[in-house]
């Protein structure tokens, strides 16, 4: 047991980061479930982080109410972009969410309440292992139920063929906005929790690079089931660190992993077809 404790002590921030990455990956996943690509989730997470940090640091609100408030604000923002973006498809939607993300980042850079370029510091360290992984477990349960429900089926139908989904009586716009709302909530929670173990939050966290990172978690992990993005988030956070000895090569490896996985495992590493083949082999 003490070996585990020692392991945790040494790598605590990495483990927590991995948990947050998994949550963020899930937030991208839920919009992908409904066939929409969102590149604004880093910004949504930042909105959540800033909201929660301001509440806990300056107004002494306890952690969970602050996290809930953060989720609510992020959800509202997500719905605000989701609705106008409804008529957009594919890459155009992605670019619109990207534009939104940049607006948020620029706002964070400039507003006094967000501390400008330096961001907010001295955020009380209220989040630890149980908070982050508790939230993650809750999210996992949420997705488990969602995937087996009428709503989850509606998402999948929309993703596969929007016209056919409409022909089945599914109110497509309603569900697309719902997907965005859930994404906002998840991202908000992730951002809020991250702010509370990282001590700081900066505008850079709302950047395009971050958003793209989150996307790669989901895609590399595989998007056929919720386990994929979680695995992708954890893997792509932990692996580069584990290979930290090769510090200089880290970017190179990240890039090589991304390319290799996308080319050779187009459905991500959690692709059920991959695993079925391996089991048959034994």
């Amino acid at each position: 047991m003490s070996a585990l404790a020692a392991l945790y002590a040494g790598y605590s921030s990495l483990i927590l980061l991995a948990g947050v990455a998994a949550l963020l990956a899930l937030s991208v996943y839920v919009t992908l479930m409904a066939g929409q690509l969102s590149l604004g989730n880093a910004a949504l997470a930042a909105i959540g982080g800033y909201t929660a940090a301001i509440l806990t640091r300056d107004h002494h609100v306890p952690l969970w109410p602050a996290v809930l408030a953060a989720a609510a604000v992020a959800t509202a923002a997500a719905v605000a972009i989701g609705i106008p973006a409804l008529r957009l498809r594919g890459i155009y939607l992605a670019l619109a969410t990207l534009a939104f993300g940049e607006v948020v980042r620029a706002a964070a850079l400039n507003l006094k309440i967000t501390g400008g370029a330096l961001g907010l510091i001295n955020i009380p360290p209220l989040a630890g292992f149980w908070q982050v992984y508790g939230a993650l477990a809750g999210a996992a349960l949420f997705f488990y139920r969602l995937e087996r429900s009428r709503v989850g089926r509606a998402f999948a139908a929309i993703r596969e063929d929007e016209a056919a989904a409409r022909a089945m009586g599914i109110k497509v716009t309603h569900y697309k906005v719902l997907a965005f709302a859930i994404a906002g909530g998840l991202a908000g929670v992730a951002g809020a929790l991250a702010a509370h173990f990282a001590y700081v939050i900066t505008p850079a966290q709302a950047s395009f690079t971050e958003a793209v990172n989150i996307l790669t978690f989901a895609v590399v992990g595989g998007t056929s089931t919720f386990v994929g993005p979680m695995a992708g988030g954890v893997l792509l956070t932990v692996l580069p660190e584990a290979l930290r000895g090769l510090r200089e090569e880290r970017l190179l490896l990240d890039g090589a992993i991304l390319m290799a996985v996308t080319i050779y495992c187009p459905n991500g590493i959690s692709d059920p077809r991959l695993w079925r083949w391996r089991r048959a082999r034994r």
């Binding site: 949420f142 429900s149 009428r150 989850g152 089926r153 999948a156 139908a157 009586g169």
Partner: peptide
Amino acid sequence: VVGEHVRTRATLLDAL
């Protein structure tokens, strides 16, 4: 089963 969607009522909360 997707076809059943329009004749059923269960919401997300029901599922959760």
